[in-house]
């Protein structure tokens, strides 16, 4: 017996509200950079800020399915694609901030940096893995791939989450400062634990009922 469903979730305005909320950090960061309010090292603030928000949006995206099941609000699924695309959007800003502000678009330096430094390589790999997910996020792509294959492809997001955490951990490791990393890691672990629990429950019931 489902609990009362929050009907507001189905309103077209709900999508607009989520869209606007997810855009706020980007608008704020770019606005603050343009008006010189990012402190003494705005390039670093932008690089860190876009990285933080990529990770946060990734966590929010991964939280949709567990929340949908836990709160019995199937309508939450409507926001998942948008949030996933926002994760990619912030990842693009983060990669752009690195390529532009940190590396000055010196392509040879960038290639060397990626090859030489595991922390950059891991972040870069996570970004590359997000590209096919963003590229197959529209309905026609889902139909063309077939739901099963599409779903299998989109499980790449779990690899992205692991790599993003490792990237963040290595960034902080030299400073011995992993408190914040631990918070994100615990959150991601919790969200993935819910998924595996759900998966086992489903599979424990299914074989009997399908009669194979």
């Amino acid at each position: 017996m489902p609990r009362t469903r929050a009907r507001g979730l189905l309103s077209p305005w709900a999508k607009v509200a989520v869209f606007v909320c997810a855009a706020v950090p980007a608008v704020w960061l770019i606005g603050a950079a343009a008006t010189d309010r990012l402190g003494a090292n705005p390039a670093e603030s932008l690089l860190r800020g876009t990285g933080d928000w990529t990770l946060r949006l990734l966590c929010v995206t991964l939280a949709i399915s567990p929340l949908r099941r836990g709160l019995q609000q199937p309508a939450l699924a409507r926001f998942r694609r948008m949030l996933g695309l926002y994760t990619f959007f912030y990842a693009v800003l983060h990669a752009l901030a690195w390529a532009w502000l940190d590396q000055g678009f010196e392509w040879a330096d960038m290639v060397r940096d990626i090859a030489k430094r595991p922390f950059i390589l891991v972040g870069f790999t996570a970004f590359v893995l997000l590209v096919p997910l963003a590229a197959t996020s529209f309905n026609r792509a889902i139909r063309a791939l077939g739901a099963r294959r599409w779903q299998r492809l989109h499980r790449l997001v779990y690899a992205v989450a692991g790599l993003a955490l490792l990237h963040f951990f290595w960034m902080r490791a030299g400073k011995n400062d992993d408190a914040e990393v631990a918070v994100y890691a615990a959150l991601v672990a919790l969200l993935l634990a819910e998924r595996s629990l759900h998966f086992f429950k489903k599979n424990a019931v299914l074989p009997a009922s399908t009669g194979h």
Binding site: D113, R117, G174
Partner: peptide, 12 residues
């Protein structure tokens, strides 16, 4: 540095 280049610097 093991995690970044020391060839350049950003003058604050």
């Amino acid at each position: 540095h093991p995690r970044w280049s020391q060839a350049t610097e950003r003058r604050i």
